[in-house]
C-alpha cells in the first residue's frame, strides 16, 4: 500500500499519522509538501493530517483548500484514490468540497482535548472493515472547530446512503446529547463521500494506535486500509 501525507505549514499530526501508517503497512508514507501540485504516482491513499494549517486564518482549512497540493489531492480523489482527512484534514476536505457540510466553532466555544467514545456506524468502508458494526471505541479529540453542520438534504443523504461512519456516544454506545462534545449534527464525528472513498473525521485515530500511547483503538482503521488497498 503506497500512501502520502500532505504537509502544510501548521500541520502537527503529519508525523503521528506517518508513524501509524508505517507501523501498520511496513512502509513509510511519502511526506508531500503543500506547494507541490503533483502527487506521487500509483498512490493508494492520501492523508490530509491534523493541525492548524495556515494558522486557521479566515476559516479552518480555508487556506489549505487552495494550496497547490490540494489540486493533486482532488485529482487523486477523482481517480478513486482513498483520501483520509483527520481533524484539520476533515475541515480542509469540507472546504474543498470533497466532503459535504462544514465544521463550525464548538458548541461551548472551548478547545476540547480529551478522549471520547465513538460508535462505528458502518463497516462497509475501506476504513472500518476491521471494526465490528456498532463497536464502541475510544479515540482522542483535539479541536476548537469540530461542530459538524450540514443542510437537511445533506443530512438525509448521509443517513440514507450509510455515509455516517462514526458518531460520538457514551461508553455504553448510546448516542446522547451529553456524549456530544462539540454540538455536531446528529453526533456526527466522521463521514464518507458519495463514492465512499473519502473519509473525514474529527477524532485522531493515529493518536491511539500504539499501546505505549495508552490504547490501540485507532489501529484497526489503518489495518482496514491496508487490507482494502493492498
Amino acid at each position: 500500500m503506497k500512501s502520502a501525507v500532505i504537509v502544510f505549514p501548521g500541520s502537527n499530526c503529519d508525523r503521528d499519522v506517518a508513524v501509524s501508517l508505517e507501523q501498520t503497512t511496513g512502509r513509510p508514507p511519502v511526506m508531500h509538501w503543500h506547494a507541490d501540485p503533483a502527487l506521487p504516482e500509483d498512490l493508494d491513499l492520501v492523508v490530509v493530517p491534523g493541525g492548524f494549517s495556515y494558522g486557521d486564518y479566515l476559516r479552518c482549512g480555508a487556506m489549505a483548500a487552495h494550496a497547490a497540493a490540494m489540486t493533486g489531492v482532488r485529482k487523486a480523489a477523482e481517480r478513486g484514490v482513498a483520501v483520509l482527512g483527520i481533524c484539520n484534514g476533515f475541515q480542509v476536505l469540507c472546504e474543498t468540497g470533497l466532503l459535504p457540510g462544514a465544521l463550525m466553532r464548538n458548541r461551548d466555544l472551548r478547545f476540547l482535548c480529551k478522549d471520547v467514545h465513538l460508535r462505528v456506524e458502518t463497516t462497509d468502508t475501506l476504513f472500518t472493515g476491521h471494526y465490528a458494526p456498532g463497536q464502541v471505541i475510544r479515540i482522542p479529540i483535539a479541536h476548537h472547530d469540530g461542530n459538524y453542520v450540514a443542510d437537511l438534504a445533506t443530512q438525509c443523504a448521509l443517513e440514507d446512503e450509510d455515509r455516517v461512519v462514526f458518531r460520538y456516544c457514551d461508553p455504553a454506545g448510546k448516542v446522547t446529547e451529553d456524549a456530544n462534545p462539540n454540538g455536531s449534527l446528529d453526533n456526527i464525528a466522521g463521514i464518507l463521500s458519495e463514492e465512499r472513498t473519502v473519509l473525514g473525521l474529527m477524532p485522531h485515530p493515529e493518536r491511539l494506535a500504539d499501546p505505549r500511547l495508552g490504547g490501540t483503538d485507532g489501529r484497526p482503521l489503518f489495518a482496514s486500509l491496508l487490507e482494502a488497498l493492498s
Binding site: 487552495h66 469540507c94 457540510g101 462544514a102
Partner: peptide
C-alpha cells in the same frame, strides 16, 4: 464564492 465565504454556512 471561491475563498472569502463558505457558502455552505
Amino acid at each position: 464564492r471561491q475563498l472569502l465565504a463558505n457558502t455552505v454556512i
